[in-house]
Design a protein around this nucleic acid. Sequence first.
DNA 1: ATGAACGTTCCGGAAAACGGAACGCGGTGG
DNA 2: CCACCGCGTTCCGTTTTCCGGAACGTTCAT
Lengths: 283, 283
Amino acid sequence: MVKPVNTSTSQQEPGKGPVDKAMEVLEALARAGGPQRLGEIARRTGLTKPTVHRHLRTLADCGFAQPAEGGAYRAGPRLLGLAAAALDSGPDLRLARPVLNDLRRRTGQLAHYAVPAGTEAVHLELSEPAGEYRMSISPGGRTPLHTSAVGLAMLSALPVPEADAVLAELLLDGALPAPTPATLTDPGALRAELARTVRRGYAVDDEYDEPDVRSVAAPVLDAQGRVVGAIGVSGLTFALDDANVAVFGPMVRAAARAVSTGLGGSAAHLGLVAGGMTDGGRA
Amino acid sequence: MVKPVNTSTSQQEPGKGPVDKAMEVLEALARAGGPQRLGEIARRTGLTKPTVHRHLRTLADCGFAQPAEGGAYRAGPRLLGLAAAALDSGPDLRLARPVLNDLRRRTGQLAHYAVPAGTEAVHLELSEPAGEYRMSISPGGRTPLHTSAVGLAMLSALPVPEADAVLAELLLDGALPAPTPATLTDPGALRAELARTVRRGYAVDDEYDEPDVRSVAAPVLDAQGRVVGAIGVSGLTFALDDANVAVFGPMVRAAARAVSTGLGGSAAHLGLVAGGMTDGGRA
DNA sequence: ATGAACGTTCCGGAAAACGGAACGCGGTGG
DNA sequence: CCACCGCGTTCCGTTTTCCGGAACGTTCAT
C-alpha cells in the first residue's frame, strides 16, 4: 500500500485527448470560411497528417464534416445543426440579437456581442451596417481580452481576484500581445483603463486591436452579477470620433443593461457595475 | 493485384468512437435549451453515467461545456465560438439571412432555412414574426425529409437515384414516421407529391408535420446544381389558406433562386429545377 | 525526367475509453 | 429512526482506440 499510483496525477494539461484534437480539427474547419484541404488543417492545428486524416474521416462518418470537391472538407450538416442549437441554447443571445440590430440602426456602425473564453473574447453575433468595409472581426473570431472594447468591458466587470488571475495568465506568454502600436501593454496602464471603464460604465478601444478601428462596449451580467458577455459597437476612427464615442458609449451601456435585465439581473448589480455612478460598493 | 482490399470495410457503424459519444453529449447539452443535469444527459443519449461524466468533464476542461449551478452543465464559450464560426462558414447562410428577413416581412409568417442531413432536414436559421405563437420548429431542430415543406423541397431537387436511396433509408425503420394524420406515408403518394413539387417549383406541407401548421418551401442549389438547403415559410393553417399558398409559393421560389444565384448557380439548373415553367428538361 | 507536396495506408507501442461495481450523499417515506 | 431510492462520483481490469513515424501511390510543377 505504498501508493505508487501515477506520480504525475496533478498535471493533466499536456497530453490532450482525442476529443480535444477532433474539436481542433472541427474548429479549423469551421473557421476557414470555405472548404479546407487536409494539409492546411494539419498546419493550422499543429497535428500530424495521419491524425488529422483519421479524425477528419471519423467526423465525416458522423456528419460533422463532409467531403467537398478536390479532396477538401467542409463543415457538415450535423455541425451546423449543433451550432444552431448551441447559439439558441442561452437566453443571452436571443435577447441580444434585436438589441444589436437596434444599435446598428441607430449608430450606423457594426454592433456585436461577445462572450468570455479564458483570456479571450469570442465574437458570436454581428449586426453589420450596409457599408462594405471589412474588419478583422468575424463570427467565432477571438481577440485577447485586453485588446478589444468588449474584452475590456468584460474584464472591468470581473471580480478583482478573477481579473487579476486573467491578467496573470495573459502575462504568462511573455509580454501582453500587441496587435497595434496603440495596444495597452503595461499592466499598470491597463488597470488604470479598467478603472476608468468602471467609472464611466463603458469601455473604449482606441485602435488597440486593429488600426483605424475604434470601439465602445459594455458588459452584460446575469442574475447573479457574473459576466456573461459584452455588447460593442465598432467603426472606423473617422466615424467614431470623440464626440460619437461620448454618444455611443451610453447607448451600448443602455443596450447591455437591457439584455442584463432581460436575463433577470437585479438593478443592484447593474447600478454598481455597469451604471458607474454610485461610488459605493465593491470593497 | 487481385484487389484483396479489406473484406470488412463496409461496416464501421456498430462501434462508435469516443468523439462521436462526446458529440452526442454536446448535442444533448446544446439542444436542451437551458442547463442540464448529468443523469438527464445519460438518459437522452443512452450512454452510461460514468461515460457521460467523463466526457462532460473532458469537454468542460477544454471549454466546450461549463458547470452551472446545481451540478448542472451548460454549453461552454468555446462551443459558442465554434458554433458562430460554423454558421458563418458557408456562403449559403450569409446569403439566406437577409432573404429570410425580407420573406418574413412580406408574408408576416415564420421564414426559415434548412439543410439536408441524412434523412432529415436541419433547421438552421429562423426569422420569426412579431406574433407570439410557438411552433415545434426551433434552431438546430430536425424533421424527417418527408414531413416538412423544406424536406420535400430538398427531396424534389435530388437526383432520382439519390432520392430513391433516401426514401429507402427512411423506409428501413419500419413505416414512414407520421407525426400527424395528414403525413404522407405511402411511397407512391409521396412520389406523386414530389412530382407536383417539381412541376410547380415549390413544396407544400399541409399539416404533415404539425397540426394546424402549413408551409411552403423551395430548394437552394449550388453552382453544380446540388441541393444545399431550402427556404420555407410556415404559418397557422388559417393564415396560410390556399390563396396565400399560391402567393407565398412563388415568393419562396424566388427567394431560393436568389440565394442559389448568389452561390454561383447558373440559370440552367435553376430554370429546370426551381423555375418550373419551362416544360423542357428532365425527360 | 526529376522533385516536391499531397493524401493515404500500415504498424507496434502507448494511452485512452469503457462500464460494472461500489461509495458517499441528500431526500423521501415507511 | 432507519431503510430506500436516485444522484453524482470514483475505482478498476479489460478492451478498444489513438498515436505518429515511416513508407507508398499519385499528381502536379519544375
